[in-house]
C-alpha cells in the first residue's frame, strides 16, 4: 500500500435513495473509481458505488458531485492521517 500523496485521502458518500443510476458520475470520475453497483435501491435503480479496491485513489475533486442530477453525492476529506492499520 503506497502512502497517499497527501495527509488525508478523500471519499464520497452516495445517497442510495436519491441516486437514480444514471451513472454520469461513473463517466466523469477522472480516476475511474466509480462503477455501477451490483444491487439496486428501493426504486429499482442500479446504483453507482466506489470500487472498494480503488477507494484510496479518490482525490476529492468533486467532479462526481458536480455532475450528479440528484444531489446524491457528498464528498469528504479525512481530517487526520489514516488509522495505523490502514497504512
Amino acid at each position: 500500500m503506497e502512502a497517499p500523496q497527501h495527509s488525508g485521502s478523500s471519499y464520497i458518500v452516495i445517497d442510495a435513495e436519491r441516486c437514480k443510476g444514471c451513472h454520469l458520475c461513473v463517466s466523469v470520475c477522472p480516476k475511474g473509481i466509480i462503477a455501477p453497483a451490483s444491487y439496486t435501491n428501493q426504486k429499482g435503480y442500479i446504483l453507482a458505488e466506489v470500487i472498494a479496491a480503488k477507494a484510496q485513489e479518490c482525490t476529492g475533486c468533486t467532479a462526481c458531485a458536480l455532475i450528479c442530477p440528484d444531489a446524491a453525492i457528498s464528498v469528504y476529506r479525512h481530517s487526520r492521517v489514516l488509522s495505523p492499520a490502514a497504512r
Binding site: G8, S9, S10, Y11, V13, D15, E17, R18, K20, G21, C22, L24, Y45, A55, Q56, G60, T62, A65, L66, P69, D70, A71, A72, I73, S74, V75, Y76, R77, H78, S79, R80, L82, S83, A85, A86
Partner: peptide, 29 residues
Amino acid sequence: MTLDTPELDTVLYHKPEALEDYPFHFCPG
C-alpha cells in the same frame, strides 16, 4: 481500511441547504 467519519472530516461537497430533503422526481440523468 479507512475510517469514514463524515462528522469529523472536512466537507468538500454536500447537498445545498436550500434544497429540501426529498428526492427529485426527474428522470435519471
